[in-house]
């Protein structure tokens, strides 16, 4: 973990209430897809945890949905704003377990961390399929970006206004054979994925956090191997250790 000052290079709205923020600065603490950063905002006491969508030297991409005061404030920040950010938080996905045909399942703002995973898996020569689920066509983002990586990309919407009607699990039959699963999304979706997939996999969870780096015990969950902190022992848990 590092505490760094990052500057907003650009921000754009990419779907309903969903924003893409590009930041510049020291990103060396980020080591794996699925990690997150914790952003300090004026007038708010606790930092806001946001997953990393993409990373390269001196540049960080965050995609977030406006759901409350903190994210609304983020969306209003002008380019050039400098933010205090704790970077490189959480364990992230272990891509060495992917096998040759990994399947990525993302729901809503659970999609962003899978983008960096897809990019690195493609760079490692894997055949990658992604199923990205949203509520409605207005919410869909990043399908072109996933396709540009050479990822077979299936979109689902709950109302059928774009792609397959239903949830990500309704498109599993179309996804073909897969060797391993990486997933991120709301807990009901993760549970449905857990019950539907046939291989092992890694699941990324969300929880309200105090610190984001393991000190406050605010985000603890039960696993088969004892208590784990979502912020430091997670947010990615192995399928085999999850307790619902």
């Amino acid at each position: 973990m590092k505490e760094v000052n990052l500057q907003i290079v650009s921000q754009e709205r990419i779907a309903r209430d969903v924003y893409k923020m590009i930041l510049s600065g020291d990103t060396t603490a980020v080591t794996a897809p699925g990690q997150f950063v914790n952003v300090r905002l004026d007038g708010l006491y606790l930092r806001r945890p946001i997953s990393v969508c993409d990373w390269q030297p001196e540049e960080l991409t965050l995609i977030y949905k406006v759901v409350g005061k903190g994210t609304a404030q983020m969306a209003s920040l002008p380019d050039g704003t400098v933010l205090s950010v704790l970077t490189g938080l959480g364990n992230g996905y272990d891509l060495t377990k992917s096998g040759e045909r990994p399947l990525l399942l993302g729901g809503g703002v659970g999609v962003p961390p899978l983008y960096l995973a897809a990019k690195l898996l493609r760079a490692a020569g894997k055949t990658v399929t992604a199923v990205l689920g949203f509520n409605t066509a207005d919410d869909v983002f990043y399908q072109d970006e996933f396709r540009a990586l050479g990822v077979r990309t299936i979109i689902t919407t709950a109302d059928g206004s774009c792609g397959t009607r239903g949830f990500v699990t309704d498109a599993l039959a179309d996804a073909g054979d897969y060797s391993y699963v990486y997933t991120c999304g709301p807990e009901p979706m993760l549970k449905a994925v857990y019950n539907a997939v046939e291989t092992s996999g890694q699941f990324s969870f969300e929880e309200r956090m105090g610190c984001g780096f393991g000190a406050c015990m605010g985000c603890t969950c039960k696993t088969k191997y004892g208590s784990k902190r979502i912020c430091t022992d997670g947010p990615v848990l192995e399928k085999e250790e999850i307790v619902w």
Binding site: Y45, G70, E207, R208, G210, S227
Partner: peptide, 23 residues
């Protein structure tokens, strides 16, 4: 002790609430 169920943390004006419960 495992402590209390989550959410255990809430934002407040100039502060925070916790109900970790002695984990």
């Amino acid at each position: 002790r495992f402590g209390n169920p989550t959410p255990r943390i809430a934002e407040c004006p100039d502060g925070m609430l916790n109900s970790v419960g002695l984990q």
